[in-house]
């Protein structure tokens, strides 16, 4: 069997930075540190490629750690964005132009009974901003109500999301995209908060609230014509299809945005386990004919990196996100 150490030697020649992290990891393992279940299983199986894949993922995952302060600031930035979005939608923004822009769709939301839902979500975003600021998050960009262009044109006011100000279907699809981005963003940063478990736990508790929001918005959309989204509020598949926005016949620019928001959400391999290839046949209650491929994508929500999140939200920010 191939020795892992010799394999690492090869990698060290080709990618010194990677190798440096792996060496640290290797030393930790040699000293008896705990190995994750996936990596342990891969090594026990003698599957070198699988073990290396797990190795590289873990080594990189731990090497790119942002500080807790970085994560708090990043989270605050996203929460201010969401907060100002819902305020504009509800007409409670401190900037009249933002309120006025959404006046047409606001009337439609009220008529459709969606206003209390949006108000409940808005209440939580207000609370998240206050909570993060009370716990040391810094508004690095000095973001305020006038820092955003919710059409997605960085201030020009004529971006692809302009229909969200006049069309309830587009508004809810946009809201869903914002909430799902929030879920994926928090998930992606959890690992960077492990050194401060109080902040980690608070972040996890915000993370699940965002998921509740996303679920409800999906249900609202399903009840109003978006037949491609699930009543269970879960995300089917990945890429633009996962938005379930086909009923809106969205322009290509919005499709492109959804492709970023739901990139990789169709992943079905977690901790080295492909959940579509498990032996469900021995499990009663999971009948043949079940759409396992779709269910598998729904059962796990994927994370986004900070860079991915930045690319998604930058069009809505007038300032440049560092």
């Amino acid at each position: 069997m191939t020795d892992i150490s010799s394999m690492l030697g090869i990698i060290e020649q080709q990618e010194p930075d990677f190798a440096q992290h792996v060496v640290t990891r290797r030393e930790a393992i040699a000293k008896g540190a705990k190995v994750s279940a996936a990596l342990g299983a891969a090594m026990a199986l003698g599957s070198v490629p699988v073990a290396l894949a797990a190795f590289s993922k873990e080594a990189y995952g731990q090497s790119t750690a942002a500080t807790v302060q970085d994560v708090l600031n990043f989270a605050l930035m996203l929460e201010i964005f969401e907060n100002e979005f819902y305020k504009a939608v509800l007409g409670t923004s401190s900037v009249a132009a933002q309120n006025n822009a959404f006046a047409p769709v606001r009337a439609l939301a009220i008529a459709a009974g969606a206003q209390p839902v949006l108000a409940q979500i808005s209440k939580h975003e207000v609370a998240h901003v206050a909570f993060l600021q009370a716990n040391g998050a810094v508004n690095v960009l000095n973001l305020g109500a006038s820092s955003f262009d919710f059409t997605g044109a960085r201030g020009a006011g004529n971006g692809p999301f302009a229909p969200a100000t006049t069309n309830l279907g587009f508004l809810l699809a946009t809201s869903q995209g914002a909430e799902d981005t929030g879920v994926r963003a928090y998930k992606g940063q959890a690992g960077n908060l492990m050194s401060n478990t109080t902040v980690l736990e608070a972040a996890l508790r915000i993370h699940s609230v965002e998921a509740r929001h996303a679920s409800k918005i999906r249900r609202l959309r399903r009840a109003t014509g978006a037949t491609a989204v699930k009543y269970s509020g879960t995300v089917s598949g990945g890429g633009a299809a996962a938005a379930g926005a086909g009923n809106l016949n969205p322009p290509q620019a919005i499709v492109d945005a959804f492709n970023l928001i739901y990139a990789g959400d169709d992943n079905v391999t977690h901790a080295g386990v492909n959940v579509t290839s498990l032996s469900y046949s021995s499990v009663s209650g999971f009948p043949s004919g079940t759409d396992l491929a779709t269910a598998a994508t729904e059962a796990f929500d994927e994370a986004l990196t900070k860079d991915q999140v930045r690319a998604i939200v930058q069009p809505f920010f007038i300032p440049t996100i560092p």
């Binding site: 879920v183 928090y186 998930k187 959890a190 996890l204 993370h207 699940s208 609230v209 965002e210 998921a211 509740r212 679920s215 879960t234 977690h270 729904e298 059962a299 796990f300 929500d301 994927e302 994370a303």
Partner: peptide, 8 residues
């Protein structure tokens, strides 16, 4: 984290 948001 991948699972808890689905539960939510």
């Amino acid at each position: 984290g991948k699972i808890v948001s689905v539960e939510a």
